[in-house]
Design a protein around this nucleic acid. Sequence first.
DNA 1: GCTTGAAGTTGACGTAGCGGCAACATCTAC
DNA 2: GTAGATGTTGCCGCTACGTCAACTTCAAGC
Lengths: 250, 250
Amino acid sequence: MAWSIAEVARSSGVTSRTLRHYHSIGLLVPARVAPNGRRYYEQEQLLRLQQILLLRDLGLSLDVVGEVIAHRDEQDAIEVLAKHKEWLVKEQLRLGRLVQTVDATIDNLKRGGEMSPENVFEGFEHNPYEAEARERWGDEAVDASYERMRGWTEADAEKARTAYPKVHQGLAALKAEGVAVTDLSVQELIQLHYEVTSLFWTPTREAYKGLGQMYVDDERFRQNIGNGDDALVEYLRDAMTVYADSKLDD
Amino acid sequence: MAWSIAEVARSSGVTSRTLRHYHSIGLLVPARVAPNGRRYYEQEQLLRLQQILLLRDLGLSLDVVGEVIAHRDEQDAIEVLAKHKEWLVKEQLRLGRLVQTVDATIDNLKRGGEMSPENVFEGFEHNPYEAEARERWGDEAVDASYERMRGWTEADAEKARTAYPKVHQGLAALKAEGVAVTDLSVQELIQLHYEVTSLFWTPTREAYKGLGQMYVDDERFRQNIGNGDDALVEYLRDAMTVYADSKLDD
DNA sequence: GCTTGAAGTTGACGTAGCGGCAACATCTAC
DNA sequence: GTAGATGTTGCCGCTACGTCAACTTCAAGC
């Protein structure tokens, strides 16, 4: 007894299009193809189809499904499945983290926050600075920085989020008053700047001065910090230089 | 200050191809396109790109990313994200179940079992009989059956897996000895057959007789049960008819 | 001014797993 | 003989780009 494509489709819950597709990629070849082109399936193919659908529903690609069935009595099949399970577990964990991040993003939006990565930083995969940071300072430095972040307390994290804006605003006020960069009030703010920077890495004297210069040189930092006021960024750089020369070791 | 495509790509960690793609689908249009066709981006586009990558990494499609950013200050965006979170949670649960099923499949293969859905039935999504069952008996009956299965004990599940083969083998032996279908030994096996069938649904007299007839009429049941011995299936049907008439209510 | 290399451009094809046409052939029933 | 169901073979479409190919343009060095 042979079944037509529609009969097989109905009884297995897939469409005839799917069966034709499986034929075209050689995954499930009909028992017989009549001279008029019609496909006919037998018990053997029905059994194979069940196995295909079982494995497909496990999330395997059709390629892999074919391989597993071909080696179904050998060790290979088990290995493939075990590897696939590993993958599933990882995916599941990844989705769990995503749920957290989506939650954080929603939270942030509700409070009227902007949708910027800084605000949703936690558990976040695509840090917008990371790619460039790795290129500019190397993988080692970036990894070390992440390592350090993992040891943060709640207070550290709070500081990392809020301190820079405080410093920038404070400096803007002092600069407006004409206070010199060597003044203690300025240097105290730079002290805070140095502390929060140290949450990520420990700048030496020259490195800290270089950081200040980079703020000036890099358009994006300049914009972010000065918000249009380029002189403020230069003020910050000068203050950092003074701080580095007076307080930091080589 | 304008950045070239390669500069933007480096600083954001995507490829220039991706940026061109985003331009071609209108997701991120450069600030300026020079007469020679070159793309130039400004701060505004960099910010937008960061938002795009943030949302993309949350697992949203680019279509949806565009929508969310367009409505980023409205309630819509939050709703979309909330819906997306629901989806993520569901996916995560689904993957969890898949892990279980893969495990069960591996286990089964290790013991030399066949890779058939009956053996890995638990938590399984694509029951090969379900589609046809829904068509043949209706959604209501199938759903009721699933409802009943949810109340199974371990013993019930064991019975459901093993009883039918026992019945078929027992009947084959008795038939070979020339025992009549009315004989008590046959009827005891049918009693077991009725019990296990009742784990799924409760057949009335006529329904049970109809089931026996279907075993004979349907090629696949006939093959599955008789394994080539069509007379055995008819023997089963006759025995079921006798049982129904003597024991079952209308 | 010429050459060279880097960086840019626009197509176009490929990916996985089918869905959904269109255009045509064949089978079954009345 | 004709209609309606069922089949066939293309071919485009979908996602989010990767990966060529074939050119053009730009900046730098001789």
